[in-house]
Amino acid sequence: MSTGLRIVVVYPDLLGTYGDGGNGLVLARRAEWRGIKASLHQALSADPVPMGDLYCLGGGEDGPQVRAAAALRQDGTLVGAVERGAAVLAVCAGFQIVGTTFPDANGSGRAGLGLLDVSTVKGTGPRAVGEVVADITAAGAGPLPTLSGFENHAGVTRVGPGAEPLATVRRGIGNGGGDASEGAVAGKVLGTYLHGPVLARNPALADLLLGWATGGQLVPLDDHEEAALRQERLAVGRRSPSGMARTRRRISRALRR
């Protein structure tokens, strides 16, 4: 493996269902554009996980998720790398895997990697699907602009005392435990339910991770296309479903009069 910043996309064959492989590409490009030497490695599940500075885990289906967790526990490299200071972005099924427990297809608890103090159970309500707008609340993430993304999950995740929620949802479901929290962060391990991919929609979050991994200051980039996308998505998010329901009720009341 080459020198420089080593970015590893973990098991794209198992955890690559929702375009989350894009997160690795965003990180690699944003490093290169700043003149930081970076390599992007796609680590397939049949191979040993390589040593890296920044790991990305994505979303996946129930069966592959169980396999990915088992393989990562057996491989051990990811856990060891985090102990030595590597940064991790874990999305959706990946977020659940880096926690302590997560549900399999039958709802039985499976052991996660324990890199983040969160635990997930199968939700009883409908699947959480839709646009998310969430304000960063975690001190560990520093001041960051509002998060934008798309969620699609059935799990309900509780954040334990060893981690803090990443954000509070303004629109969408997020962790789903009734506290409006979304994602979690502890040290250099950050989990979220947001697809999009999340780093394409939130370049500041990409730079937070790059800063963690490189330990250096990052020069700003021309992100006008990301800014235009964010402006559009955040505007959609401002009309929350409950707001629309209120409008509908008001109209139907007016019509009845």
């Binding site: 929702y18 375009g19 989350d20 492989g21 699907v129 646009e131 697809h195 991919p197």
Partner: peptide, 9 residues
């Protein structure tokens, strides 16, 4: 489909 994140695939 309301989620175009597949563009990254």
């Amino acid at each position: 489909g309301k989620d175009p994140s597949w563009l990254w695939d």
